[in-house]
Amino acid sequence: MIKVAIAGARGKMGQEAVHTVMKQENMELVAVLDYKEIGETLAQTGLFPTDYTAPVFTDLQALHTATKPEVLIDLTNPQSVYAHTKEALALGIRPVVGTTGFTDEQLAELTAFAEEKALGCIIAPNFAVGAILMMKFAKEAARFFPDVEIIEMHHDQKLDAPSGTGLKTAQMIQEVRQSKQQGHPNETETHAGARGANFDGMHIHSVRLPGLVAHQQVLFGGDGQLLTIRHDSFNRGSFMSGVAYCVEEVMKQKTVVYGLENLI
Rank of each mutant, 00 (worst) to 15 (best):
I2V: 09
I2R: 03
I2H: 09
K3L: 05
V4W: 05
V4L: 05
I6L: 10
G14E: 10
A17E: 07
T20N: 07
V21L: 08
M22H: 11
K23G: 05
E28K: 06
E28F: 08
V32A: 11
Y35E: 06
G46P: 01
F48V: 01
T50W: 15
Y52V: 02
T53D: 11
P55Y: 09
V56A: 12
D59K: 08
D59F: 00
L60H: 05
T67L: 01
T67N: 06
P69H: 10
E70K: 12
I73E: 07
S80D: 14
E87R: 14
I93F: 03
R94Y: 08
P95Q: 01
V96R: 01
G101V: 15
F102K: 02
Q106D: 07
A108P: 03
A108F: 04
I123T: 03
A128F: 14
I132M: 14
K136L: 15
F137C: 12
R143L: 15
F145D: 12
P146M: 09
V148A: 14
E149G: 09
I150Q: 07
I151Q: 12
M153Q: 14
D156M: 06
K158P: 03
A161R: 13
K168D: 03
E175Q: 15
R177Y: 08
H191Q: 12
A192W: 15
R195W: 09
M202I: 13
S206P: 01
G211E: 09
H215Q: 13
V218T: 14
L219N: 05
L219Q: 09
Q225A: 14
Q225V: 14
T228Y: 00
T228R: 02
I229H: 11
R230I: 08
S233C: 12
F234A: 10
N235R: 10
G237P: 08
S238I: 06
M240S: 06
G242E: 08
C246T: 03
V247Q: 13
E249I: 03
K252P: 02
K252C: 00
Y258C: 10
